[in-house]
Design a binder for these strands. Structure first.
Lengths: 351, 351
DNA sequence: AAAGCTGACCAAAGCGCTTTGGCTACGGGC
DNA sequence: GCCCGTAGCCAAAGCGCTTTGGTCAGCTTT
């Protein structure tokens, strides 16, 4: 059933039917009612390709997805995508994933923009001075960044969480509990969120006249295995940290595996705080020792970005709107007072 | 730059230019060369909406993605998606994700088919008698199933791995090593792959006159947390299993966490075999005790399905083509001889 | 030499929608 | 009584592509 057929059934012109369905004012209310009712009855759905060709609008939002040997699409991405999907589903639009090799990213963005296949895109995990953002400005394709990019000489629309604040608060809590040797297992060092998180830790340490030791820093993609390795390295040492802050529950899983190997326990030997993006299948309160977390559902962020993209497409949102979400620090059993300071213990032993 | 402009530059008709670019025979080779060269030079790219409208072909493959509160898009899905993306990227087509609430799945498939937004779709994790497959047959939308569905009264195209064989072989190995109490941590019991895996285990046990005890079965979605819980339940028992077979590395992570809690070690106390879908960020050989696995890269399956979907769209593949991949059993340190049989030990103690 | 192919090209008709630029009928203002 | 504004409808022109159904010259057939 297409527009022509529907309009014939109704003995109206295509114009009028189209206008009636699209809410234009120059249609009598009575006529509109008839049209809408008939459309429903016959199950009429406008052909999206035709509409797109006529309007130039696609009714889809896109994501340029780096893929290939070297790229892990990770758990965080999927959970975010689910959030985008939640909104899209409720508002009846689809998502287009344009896979790209990391080297051809720019070309892929250009193609996507030129094709008018999508009305808007989102950008995830930006780096400092991220080239994609500048490119999208140039292309004039509506977009929103999930996260932030520093070092860009123009403002841009984004949604981010207060990474610095979250990790500052987590660190401060550990300091208050007497911890001095605090290690940070961070994410990919190129990414802005990792930079901000480290900044938060440093600021809190700095407030106490301390600083983050290099050997207590680790920056890797946030996987179980990387968490395991980093923890092994950090903890298998006499002067090991008494507290660990992890950027992801994935890393934390690895950390727990390492702790098991080393026979260390939480929180007696090591206190643990993890950032929690909220995975439905991995709840920090379900751990043997429930985890203290800085918590911000990445899925909600996905839904919000979809919502804002829809708003931008409809031109209800314009300009470089910035949105930063606060992050909760939720204290559970995995933090405790710092164990007896080793050096002090040794001094006592010598005394 | 559109077709009209390009054809004017070349002083040719749109027809000829279109045919030249689409590889039709009735164009002189010399002309074709000129056209192709000019298209490249001017960066001409056909407008996909227009093409779609004219041909009815979309150049995209789709996936109806259940989402919402109750649905976990899991790691396996993403890795599979990456594989689809690998192929799509190399062959210049895009993916459309149509998010749906689990309740509206049928409607979403109907919408997708009616809209002609995609040329083909894939179906993942089918259940026995999966309704989606019947629906797709009815709709006439090309599709391929990743996995199998039993209890359907017609044949359909699919790609699956030999789950039964893999788990049979794994079980047989454990039996050969003297294990008698073997537990299976399976996936969602509704899914065919889980049924097949259990069948494999049962067959191997049956060959030795043994059978799978109910208390040694666990069927849950394959997450770390579920693995942890199941392992806790199974192993915190006098008559605990001496070997565990896991359906996913995700579960295995949880199992290892549980083993750590309980102070049990691999393979001295418990032997461990896990199915490995191959996640780039979690390599079984990287574990403290390297894991024995049944290994089949889910990403390759994604790429292969994309390839076959492309073939179906081009009508190079038709009919209910079945494809089953063998699965390797890779033996590493996590399996060993069964520990002294408890009952025997007790008898000795009494003797 | 007429008829019939064939290779190489083209004009124009869609595909199904939106939107421009009318047209008609009615009522109010002067 | 005339003009104009307006509400409500319509025909037709796109959007940019593919594809149908030609044309036409240059060959081969008989």
């Amino acid at each position: 059933m297409n527009l022509k057929q529907l309009s014939q059934k109704l003995s109206l012109s295509q114009t009028t039917v189209s206008r009636a369905l699209n809410g234009y004012p120059e249609v009598a209310e009575e006529t509109r009612r008839r049209v809408v009712e008939a459309a429903k009855r016959y199950g009429y759905r406008p052909n999206p390709s035709a509409r797109r060709l006529a309007t130039g609008k696609a009714g889809m939002i896109g994501y340029v997805m780096p893929t290939g040997e070297s790229v892990d699409i990770d758990t965080h991405f999927v959970e975010f995508l689910s959030g985008v999907g939640d909104y899209a589903r409720a508002h009846d639009f689809d998502l287009v994933l344009s896979p790209t090799s990391p080297d051809d990213e720019e070309m892929t963005y250009r193609r996507v923009a030129a094709n008018h296949q999508v009305d808007a895109v989102y950008v995830s995990s930006p780096k400092s001075g991220d080239a994609r953002i500048r490119l999208l400005e140039e292309l004039g394709l509506p977009y929103i960044v999930h996260g932030r990019a520093d070092d860009l000489d123009f403002a841009f629309p984004f949604l981010d969480i207060d990474n610095e604040g979250a990790f500052h608060d987590a660190t401060r809590l550990l300091l208050q509990l007497g911890h001095q040797r605090i290690a940070l297992l961070n994410g990919d060092p190129g990414k802005t969120f990792a930079v901000h998180r480290e900044r938060g830790v440093r600021r809190a340490l700095g407030d106490q006249g301390l600083h983050l030791q290099d050997r207590f820093r680790s920056s890797t993609t946030m996987t179980e295995e990387n968490g395991y390795r980093a923890a092994k390295r950090l903890l298998d040492d006499n002067e090991r940290p008494t507290a660990l802050i992890c950027s992801s529950l994935m890393q934390t899983l690895g950390v727990l595996r390492a702790l098991g190997d080393l026979g260390l326990s939480v929180p007696d030997d090591v206190s643990l705080i993890s950032h929690d993006d909220v995975f439905p299948f991995l709840r920090p309160e379900g751990f043997a020792t429930p985890l203290t977390t800085t918590c911000s559902p990445i899925r909600a962020a996905g839904a919000r970005i979809a919502e804002r993209l829809a708003a931008r497409i409809a031109e209800r949102e314009t300009g470089p709107v910035a949105e930063v979400w606060p992050v909760d620090l939720i204290v559970r059993g995995s933090v405790g007072r710092a164990p007896e300071n080793k050096r002090k213990a040794r001094l006592v032993g010598q005394g």
